[in-house]
Design a protein around this nucleic acid. Structure first.
Length: 485
RNA sequence: GGCUCGUUGGUGAAGCGGCUUAACACAGCGCCCUUUCACGGCGUCAUUCACGGGUUCGAAUCCCGUACGAGUCACCA
């Protein structure tokens, strides 16, 4: 059995999209499932018009952040280089192969301008029949073609497809697909600027790089027979195809760059972890055999199986990603989590006298995405103005009147406290509850409101008081007592 | 319009002819735990698998048709 070789072949046209990233993930997994599988990065930049500066760096950066490390690629080399199509072109390979394909009867030279095609299209639509370009250049003699090419006339090379028969192929996901050759379009292989089209470069490169498994979106399903015809003309081995269903924004629309839908970079900047994103998208369109949902990359390599990729589009559900992100955050070892979260805490809480570690602790079971941290803990720094209505809570059986009594007693207690430990604060307050003959919530709920000025907070009264320190606790208690009086 | 593909709950999905009066997870709802919110625990949420026929003792699972959706038909990838 030959080594499995897969390739991720993006165009450098901007941010990395979720669907794209998922394709990269699947390609990586298909290769890495095997001991000696090879994952390759190839840059497809044959469309000079759409190139975006810096886009290639985003691709490198993203793969790195995701741990989808490639074994061969433009930045690290390999035995099948170059790995950028515009560089490959320099040797004239695509042109040579295109001409060779002509000799083999799989292609022909075409001098038609857009007008000729347009004209035929109009006639077809006028007659209400389906359009298929019937290239008059196919009838040109070899001599005439040579003469015109030599004379410097602009030309393209189009694929030649016979009208009879059918072409079938088997996709690992979608099964066997058969089409009538007559419906196949004689696509351009080599553009007039000398660049190959994606369709052609792809076939040539995949063959030259010994790619064994082609993983791509199902939008290529209908052009795959055309590629296979090229492989057949050359007498090359056809790779194993793995077409993936699209990642959708909603039932009708794919997730796309054009609509400004969230990219991988956007998600990162909103505070999603790359591991969580990857884990989540692995499950979009692929179902594991077991009920496990949280996977490390190694586990994913083990569990991944092309046969369990689905066939229908999957809607990207940010809610589930949020949940998964929270799971990752919660399950992290505290120190690792702390490193991750510290910048966000420091940004929200500038006051250095507060113990950031304690803040991180109360946050860990509650954070979902990092960017939400700010609003959760900014009350430590800036005591907000709040409404006395916050003191009304039916379940806790508190109202402003009870609150005022509790706060006054708490203040007296706090003033007398000498040992400012969480344990001591807890025990003293609990004693006070007993002394006052009220319920826990009637004391602790108002105190928490008084200290935070917020209805909901990470952590309860005791934790917050502990972090604020005795002085600030008394200060806030005073302010709240004044407000309630 | 032609061709190709798809259709299980709000979402991701399992199921591949009887074990299914359709798993699991997210979201929702309710309860418990509890000093708020979370975390954790428990329960509930499709009598039904787009629809209509057929095959079969038996169908979400096989076949045919219809509807709806997507992709493709570029010198884009």
């Amino acid at each position: 059995m030959t080594k499995v070789r897969t390739r991720f072949a993006p165009s450098p046209t901007g941010y990395m999209h979720i669907g794209n990233l998922r394709t990269a993930l699947y390609e990586y997994l298909v290769a890495k499932k095997e001991e000696d599988g090879v994952f390759i990065l190839r840059i497809e930049d044959t469309d000079q018009g759409r190139l975006v500066e810096g886009a290639t760096d985003i691709i490198y950066e993203t793969l790195k952040q995701c741990g989808l490390n490639h074994d061969e690629g433009p930045d690290i080399g390999g035995n099948y280089g170059p790995y950028v199509q515009s560089e490959r072109m320099q040797s004239g390979v695509y042109k040579d192969y295109a001409w060779k394909l002509i000799e083999l009867g799989g292609a022909h030279v075409c001098f038609c301008g857009e007008e000729v095609i347009e004209e035929q299209r109009e006639i077809a639509s006028a007659k209400n029949t389906s359009f298929k370009f019937d290239d008059p250049c196919k009838k040109l003699s070899k001599e005439e073609v040579e003469a015109r090419v030599n004379a410097g006339e602009k030309y393209v090379i189009r694929q030649s497809i016979k009208e009879e028969g059918t072409t079938s192929f088997t996709d690992e996901v979608y099964g066997t697909i058969t089409v009538d050759n007559i419906t196949l379009d004689e696509q351009v292989l080599l553009k007039s600027d000398g660049f190959p089209t994606y369709n052609f470069a792809n076939v040539i490169d995949d063959h030259m790089m010994d790619i064994t498994h082609v993983v791509r979106g199902n939008e290529y399903l209908s052009s795959t027979p055309k590629y296979n015809l090229i492989y057949e003309s050359f007498g090359w081995n056809i790779p194993t195809y793995i077409h993936c269903p699209p990642v959708m924004k909603d039932e009708q629309h794919k997730l796309s760059k054009r609509n400004g839908d969230a990219s991988f970079q956007d998600l990162l900047s909103k505070g999603y972890l790359s591991e969580a994103i990857l884990n989540y998208i692995a499950l979009l369109g692929w179902a594991p055999e077991t009920e496990q949902e949280i996977y490390t990359m190694d586990e994913l390599k083990q569990a991944f199986n092309v046969k369990r990729i689905g066939t229908s589009g999957a809607i990207f559900d940010i809610e589930k990603l949020k949940w998964m992100n929270a799971v990752y955050l919660r399950n992290k070892d505290f120190n690792e989590y702390y490193d991750l979260v510290l910048p966000y805490i420091s940004e929200a809480v500038k006051n250095d006298s507060y113990d950031k570690k304690e803040i991180a602790k109360i946050l860990q079971p509650r954070v979902t995405i990092l960017s939400e941290i700010h609003d959760m803990i900014d009350f430590f720094d800036t005591y907000p103005t709040y409404s006395n209505d916050f003191y009304i809570n039916k379940k806790m059986k508190t109202d402003p009147e009870i609150a005022l009594r509790s706060l006054i007693e708490t203040k007296k207690l706090v003033e007398s406290l000498t040992n400012w430990s969480q344990e001591n604060i807890h025990d003293s307050l609990m004693n006070l509850v007993v002394e006052m003959g009220i319920k826990n919530g009637q004391l602790l709920y108002p105190v928490r409101i008084a200290l935070s000025g917020k209805e909901f907070t990470p952590g309860g009264a005791i934790e917050i008081a502990y972090i604020l320190g005795k002085e600030e606790t008394l200060h806030r208690l005073d302010l709240s007592i004044a407000q309630l009086s």
